[in-house]
Amino acid sequence: MKTTVIKFGIYGLIFAIVIFLGALYFGQELSYSTQEVLGYTSMIVSLIFVFFGIKHFRDRENEGRVNFGKALIIGLLISLITAVGFGIADYIYTTAINPNFFEEYEIAMRNQGYKGEIPEFTSGLAALLMFATVTILGLIISIISALILQKK
Rank of each mutant, 00 (worst) to 15 (best):
A23K: 10
T122S: 15
G53H: 00
R58M: 07
L13W: 09
I136W: 03
T95G: 04
F26D: 02
G53W: 01
L38H: 07
I148E: 01
T82S: 10
F51M: 07
I97N: 05
G39F: 00
T3K: 15
I140N: 06
F52I: 12
G113N: 04
G75W: 07
S145H: 07
V50P: 06
I10S: 00
D59W: 03
T41I: 15
S33H: 05
L24A: 09
V18L: 14
I6H: 03
L24Q: 12
E103R: 10
T34D: 02
P99Q: 08
A96C: 06
G53S: 00
T4H: 05
F131T: 03
K7E: 03
H56L: 08
I48T: 14
A23N: 13
L137P: 04
V37S: 02
S79K: 09
L149I: 02
T94Q: 05
R65D: 10
V5K: 10
F20W: 06
L147Q: 07
Q35D: 05
F15N: 02
Y11M: 06
F131D: 07
I81P: 02
I48D: 00
L147Y: 09
G27H: 05
M109K: 15
F49C: 11
V50E: 04
F49E: 07
T3P: 04
N98G: 00
M43W: 12
I144M: 08
F15S: 04
L24T: 03
F51D: 01
T4S: 12
I148F: 08
Y25H: 10
G75M: 04
L137T: 08
D59E: 15
I10H: 00
M1T: 11
F15G: 03
L80K: 06
E36S: 15
S145Q: 08
I141Y: 09
I118S: 10
